[in-house]
Simulated assay, not measured.
Amino acid sequence: MMGTAVHVVLRAHFLVDTCQQSQLKEEMTLLDPEIQILMDQAEELQSLLRGETTLADATCSEILIKLDRA
């Protein structure tokens, strides 16, 4: 396969993966609406990955404790 064909195949794979993840999240939230709240809160934890929050602060986070229980 040429470089362009590989690029097209990878892009298609990523699009399908994104759609499947979206559908899975939707089905999960229909079963338990609290999961959506937890996922929204988990996005706030991205600050840890960006280095804006210390690991000690993150481990004491109520959000992480709720996610662990779920």
Rank of each mutant, 00 (worst) to 15 (best):
M39W: 06
L45F: 02
L67P: 00
H13G: 04
H13N: 14
L45N: 01
L45A: 06
L30V: 07
S22D: 08
Q36H: 06
Q36Y: 04
I37E: 10
A5T: 13
A5V: 07
L48Q: 03
M28V: 09
Q21I: 09
A5K: 12
A5N: 12
A70W: 11
L38W: 02
E26C: 10
V8N: 13
A5P: 02
L15T: 06
L55H: 10
K25D: 08
L55P: 01
T29V: 12
T29I: 08
E43V: 05
I63E: 00
H7S: 13
L55G: 02
L45R: 04
C60S: 15
M2Y: 10
A58H: 04
E52L: 04
L64H: 01
M1H: 11
Q46D: 14
S61V: 03
L49N: 10
S61D: 03
L48C: 06
V9Q: 13
E43D: 10
K66D: 06
H13V: 15
V6E: 14
V16W: 13
A58S: 08
V8Y: 08
Q20H: 13
D17E: 15
T29H: 00
I65V: 07
C60L: 15
Q20N: 12
V6Q: 15
G51V: 03
R69A: 12
D68S: 12
A12M: 09
G3C: 08
R11I: 05
L64E: 02
I35D: 01
E34P: 02
Q20V: 10
E26T: 07
T4D: 15
L67T: 00
L31M: 04
A12T: 11
H7N: 13
C60N: 15
Q20D: 08
G3H: 10
S22K: 12
E44K: 05
L10K: 09
A12P: 03
I35K: 01
M39N: 03
E26V: 10
D57P: 00
D40K: 09
G51Q: 05
P33D: 01
L49Y: 06
E34M: 05
E27C: 04
T54P: 03
E62W: 05
D57I: 00
E43F: 05
L24N: 08
K25P: 03
S47K: 15
M1V: 09
I37P: 00
A5L: 12
G3I: 05
I65T: 08
T29C: 14
I35Q: 02
T18K: 14
Q21D: 10
K66R: 15
H7V: 07
C19D: 08
D57S: 07
E27W: 09
L49R: 11
E52V: 02
T54H: 06
L15Y: 09
C19L: 14
L31D: 01
L64T: 04
L48S: 01
V6Y: 14
L31W: 00
M39D: 04
A42W: 02
D68N: 12
E44V: 05
E43P: 00
L30R: 06
V9A: 12
H13L: 13
Q41P: 01
K25E: 07
A58F: 03
I65Q: 09
A56E: 13
A12E: 15
Q23N: 12
A42C: 08
L55V: 10
L67A: 04
L31Y: 02
V8I: 11
A56C: 06
I35N: 01
T53W: 01
L48W: 03
A70S: 11
Q46S: 11
